[in-house]
Design a protein around this nucleic acid. Structure first.
Lengths: 135, 135
DNA sequence: TCCAGTTAGTTCAAGACTAAACCAGTTCAA
DNA sequence: TTGAACTGGTTTAGTCTTGAACTAACTGGA
């Protein structure tokens, strides 16, 4: 694979993601959630602190502050001061948040699955394996 | 593959792209180019009109107006009115633009290749095939 | 020839994003 | 026990992005 091919690959991949997100944005919005907020929500279980979340999602801390605030105001997230380190805000998904997250992920997954359907089951498994190695 | 797995796959993929772009942003910036401008530049040959470009790159038209303006001001792009349709602006990459584009793509490709290096040559070819099917 | 409907591209105002600076709490070496 | 250096999170202030509305040019039917 030549160097320019790698960039081409990147670009293909990027276009794929952007078009998938564009198709679900409206439906996700109807849930009272921006797409980025959905991604934040979906990582809270695994990364329950804002700074961790920001690093995991490759976004700046101040942006995370904004998303967390909005999610909290919408009742999808609670936060409590961490007893062990008073600087930290431990994030907890509320039942409403979990419900909306699952719906949102389903919408996203459906849209993506529509693209994935162009691949056989074997190919889908391959893709998954390759991406996991890359991340 | 379950529905939520598809979302997970999406998220893995997204994170991969974002982290690659974050690592090259500074170097690309040194060329006098924002990463998004680089992507615009790299598609001009294939989609020489702003509206087409916007559709291909999945971004709104006003954003394209801004990028094209900047690229033109930087001397990386020229535009001329299309004789056959006076509404259209045909875009042309200048020699300076082409040079900077190739450098930028090389930077991006190198960063991505660093990740891709985790895959064997055969796996890289597989990935390429899969992504092409998806797009 | 009109003119209603479309399309290419732009403008502008409003909202989204983030770099820099900041405060509060923690850590650890002296 | 300091206090210098660091980390988590927020605020501020300025930049970037984009939806809505617009102008100009094209198209096709009457």
């Amino acid at each position: 694979m030549t160097k320019i091919d790698a960039a081409r690959l990147w670009s293909l991949n990027h276009r794929l993601l952007m078009s998938v997100i564009a198709t679900v944005a409206a439906e996700v919005g109807a849930l009272g959630l921006e797409p980025k907020e959905l991604f934040v929500l979906s990582e809270v279980d695994e990364h329950p602190y804002p700074a961790e979340l920001a690093a995991a999602l490759v976004m700046p801390k101040p942006s995370m502050t904004v998303y967390v605030k909005r999610l909290e105001a919408a009742g999808f997230l609670r936060r409590e001061i961490d007893a062990a380190d008073l600087r930290k805000h431990r994030l907890l998904i509320t039942p409403a948040g979990r419900k909306v997250m699952q719906r949102g992920l389903t919408l996203l997954a459906d849209a993506f699955a529509e693209r994935l359907a162009r691949l056989s089951a074997g190919e889908q498994a391959q893709l998954r394996g390759l991406l996991e190695k890359l991340c």
